[in-house]
Write a protein that binds this DNA or RNA. Structure first.
Lengths: 239, 239
DNA sequence: AAGTGGTCTAGACCACTGT
DNA sequence: CAGTGGTCTAGACCACTTC
């Protein structure tokens, strides 16, 4: 009888994944700024590995849109233009609202519990901590709620796409900026959403989340001083 | 003075792309059936190339969800379960409705012309050809219209995602089956859509397309004898 | 013409499978 | 413990850039 069950199998991590994750975290975490140029050989040299696995890692990053490869010029960390940011918000809105509708249909009791526990801890935070510390403590809890929320859709295709697009924005700490603006409102929205999902009212849940994203977008455009021209597509949402 | 202008530069095509495109077309075109197993070495042998570029092609196919790689078991062409098909329809609905809304905002005169010409040719087809031949002739024209439609959104991120998900379904000739069921209705919807986009009524255009996708889905579930349980998420669309 | 970046080959190596 | 599949290395090669 083994002492532990469900011990995660110790995986041999391919070099390409180590490199991929390192670069990805560096870009998303803001250490590699947009515009930074580098070549496969450089990376290979610094990791003391050959270029083949680096190539593969870089190809994956390119497919996800985090870097751009231009022939004979090397790789460059992509900066997102205002227009692209708008487009990503639009994609998020479409995908996340759909996922929320699914979540309301398909949520299990485990899903509800996972969301509930994140909300309870957040409520606890706001009751006990002074306002300045709330923001810092709330952010990871909101992230946990979101994770549970999208998992409740039980569609890995949908959730994978959602997280890829969230990460594109993470790089700019946009979501963080938005969340920390009005943490209490953010929590209230999630409480409402929880009720709707518990009640399986998928239509209202999807609509609430769509409005929430429009709201985030509006806050962020002010925060980042986005030119009006680029902003209009979502700032006055068409639907 | 050169004889021709805008001659497309003859590109050296990397082996990985040749392999990628070949496999992709074979899978999407139905020649490689779901469940078919193969290894990198096999492919490399048949193309008389080394395994590295094949690996890269296969990784790309995996990222797009066309094949699955399981350690020590080789690669296998993915079959899509009924649930996955439903999920892909849901993703399509979310992305394509969003794109249509964008298209209504951002369409240029060139975009309108491209759509118009596909529609005109289709009208011509229905006026001149007997009904049986219409279906065959209409399908590529509908595809051309769709291409112009999504291009009008001027968001490569959005359109790339859309085509990837359409291709996942192409494999089963689902869209073809749906389109050829009622080609005239299909054309009428596109004519309506064209008017709405020309009038920049993005709300109505998005809603029309969302309904169209729900409709396609319903036709297809009948056509493919999908079990009710899996069908319900979209057959009675939540929104 | 030299240099750089990108790609491919051949083969070694290692992890896992099944006898 | 041989066999197979998956990964990596080292280096050759070629396309393109720059001097």
């Amino acid at each position: 009888m083994p002492l532990l069950t469900n011990v995660p199998k110790i995986k041999f991590k391919p070099v390409r994944e180590v490199v991929y994750e390192y670069l990805r975290d560096a870009i998303v975490g803001g250490h590699l700024m947009p515009g930074t140029q580098f070549t496969d050989s450089q990376i290979a040299g610094e990791f003391h590995v050959s270029r083949t696995p680096v190539r593969e890692a870089v190809q994956k990053l390119e497919a996800e849109g985090l870097i751009k490869r231009t022939p004979m010029k090397g790789n460059v960390v992509t900066g997102l233009s205002p227009l692209e940011l708008v487009q990503i918000f639009a994609i998020r809105k479409a995908l996340e609202s759909e996922a929320v509708q699914y979540a309301a249909f398909l949520r299990t009791h485990q899903d509800l519990e996972a969301m509930r526990s994140a909300l309870d801890e957040a409520q606890q935070v706001f009751r006990t901590l002074p306002e300045e510390q709330c923001q810092e403590a709330y952010i990871p809890l909101a992230a946990r709620f979101n994770r549970a929320l999208f998992d409740a859709a039980h569609s890995s295709r949908l959730t994978d796409l959602i997280w890829i697009h969230r990460e594109l924005l993470d790089r700019y700490r946009l979501l963080r900026a938005v969340a920390s603006r009005r943490p209490i409102e953010s929590l209230q929205i999630r409480e409402q959403l929880y009720s709707l999902i518990e009640a399986q009212d998928s239509e209202a849940a999807g609509a609430l989340w769509a409005r929430h994203i429009d709201g985030s977008y509006r806050i962020w455009t002010k925060f980042a001083h986005i030119p009006e021209g680029a902003a209009r597509y979502l700032a006055e949402p068409p639907a």
